[in-house]
Design a protein around this nucleic acid. Structure first.
Lengths: 345, 345
DNA sequence: GTGAAAGCGCTAACAT
DNA sequence: ATGTTAGCGCTTTCAC
């Protein structure tokens, strides 16, 4: 049992022969402290093994010193573990988490994980946030019309979104140049000689889906293809499968497919395989995201890479800046996608 | 700007016409308080919109009021986002997270997410824990010889493991009756008429892998099959693929395969498909876990269900109990697996 | 540049 | 059963 009281500022002060105030100044990096004393304090800190008491600090600074990573979306209402399991098992969310955790680590911070899957829970989450459970929130929505961002704005809770909100609100976000990514995909397909392009889109109420579709169409049009068949998917594997089935039925001669994410591309690949179409020879397929599944595809998926981890880290950076400077205006940071060529196209 | 100071105990006390102490008692559910006063206090709390200040409470109780969910394992050392992304994208870890988050939610708690992928970071994590970043930790290891559990024990940090540690140490854990699960798989395969069984195991330095293998062999032996070919896998899809290739090469007449997790089963299914073996008619396949991939398999995977979310929730329950009663002895809780029959066997 | 002292909001003795 | 009071460890004016 280590019932030995942890060293406090007072202990360090005594060991260094100065006052609490001076130790506090040194620890918090306030200038106006004699260099010799700084050194003495540092030594005393090392000797005593002092570590600041977060609660005491929070009490006076009125800051929790931590941030929340909250996933917001609509549960599928099946009452079981369905939604939460699938969202946390989503590789996309896993990459966001990884980016946040690794960015925070050097700062000695750890994110609080929150799940807001119903309106009731969302209200609770915002209340907890307002009452200081964390100093701000990183918001990842699974659906287009998520009310949480707006709730945060209204509650004056610092927040940063992953992806531009469907409805404009004054909030910071980090996003990808989706249209550019889709252009990359189209140009690659065209460059390898595909004549009949088609695309499986994401849910069209999501801005990212719209942008990817627009970019793809735009690039196709520039290359003399004014018409591109589209089928709307759901960003899930099964949606990719049914979309590909429809595409094959309605446009049997398609030879180049752009799926708006890797999961749907994987589903499309399955279907193509079942139909005996050789990939990439008969039909070339390009995905989007470059998540872990891209390598699990058969053949390995050519895809548009979205630097999710870096984007997540940037979200955290922006959030910390906002917490640091409460008045500041919302910012947006847009990342550039890159094409990762593998075997499927 | 809401610069209005949040209501404090003092405010509530004044509104209710009692003292701070009484309000505190009511809020913390201490008996010995007159029922009428309790009611008055509750009304005052509602009126004022009071919410306890966590920092102030932590300062005096010396409790953070939160717990950590830490993933520990060895990074793959490629210096990039590799390890953290893949571990957080692992559906298994996603299910654990979901179970923990949902269990904690009604308690108004949110887990702190930590990643400990090197010895240096593990030391930091334990230090933070010891200094009160959280009151205890839920440990999920990705490898057999993870030093973190022992470090927690030594640092006197309350902790609960997912899965029995490879080396016995005095720590609580939650686990599955792996052998029973493997028996379920073997018996199902046998019952459907399979004559030549084989198994793809997990890494054999992991207790769970050993137990599943033992259970499978045991059940086979009971049914007159003293010899079962085994190939060691790595719990990843690619490991399942190469294992299946070897099995097919060395035991071409195999007609019933038990893969020690769903990911490897998925890989095995791929290989079987490539070799033109019909599943389940020519070769039946049973997996383990019943994770989200089980349904993504072709055909849908018959598998042994591990109630990961419930197990994770139980971990949290046990941890909170330990935090509540610091002296208590370690506990273990073992869950029972069930067989989920789908199309692959 | 440095120290003394006043709290931050809460819980838990201790009185009553 | 309820109120009074003494801190918990820290930051931050305010004097010097």
């Amino acid at each position: 049992m280590k019932d030995f009281r942890a060293p406090t500022l007072e202990d360090v002060a005594r060991a260094a022969g100065v006052s609490r105030a001076t130790v506090s100044r040194v620890i918090n990096g306030v200038r106006n402290v004699d260099v010799d004393l700084q050194e003495a304090v540092r030594r005393a800190v090392a000797e005593t093994g002092y570590a600041p008491n977060r609660a005491a600090r929070s009490l006076v600074t009125r800051r929790a010193g931590s941030i929340a990573l909250v996933v917001s979306g609509a549960g599928d209402g099946d009452g079981s573990w369905g939604f939460s399991s699938s969202v946390f098992a989503d590789p996309f969310f896993g990459r966001v988490t990884a980016g946040v955790v690794e960015f925070l680590r050097p700062l000695g911070m750890y994110p609080l994980l929150m799940l807001a899957d119903t309106d009731e829970v969302r209200a609770e989450v915002v209340a907890h946030l307002r009452h200081g459970a964390a100093d701000g929130a990183l918001l990842v929505s699974t659906h287009a019309e998520d009310p949480l961002p707006e709730m945060c704005v209204r509650a004056d809770v610092p927040a940063v979104l992953f992806a531009r909100p469907a409805t404009p609100i004054p909030i910071s976000y980090v996003d990808l140049a989706h249209a550019d990514g889709a252009r990359l995909a189209a140009e690659h397909l065209l460059a390898r000689g595909c004549q009949r392009l088609a695309t499986i889109t994401g849910p069209l109420d999501v801005p990212a889906s719209q942008d990817r579709l627009a970019g793809f169409r735009d690039a196709a049009a520039r290359h003399g293809r004014p018409y591109v068949p589209i089928v709307e998917g759901n960003f899930q594997r099964d949606g990719g499968e049914s979309a590909m089935e429809r595409l094959l039925a309605e446009h049997p001669k398609v030879d180049g497919v752009f799926a708006a994410n890797d999961l749907m591309a994987q589903g499309a690949l399955h279907v193509l395989h079942r139909h005996g179409r050789r990939v990439p020879d008969e039909v070339a397929v390009v995905g989007f995201d470059d998540g872990p599944q891209a390598l699990a595809c058969q053949p390995p998926l050519t895809t548009v890479r979205q630097p999710v981890e870096d984007m997540a880290a940037e979200m955290a950076r922006v959030l910390l800046a906002h917490i640091d400077k409460p008045g500041a205006d919302p910012t947006s940071v847009i990342f550039d996608p890159t094409l990762v060529v593998r075997a499927s196209a």
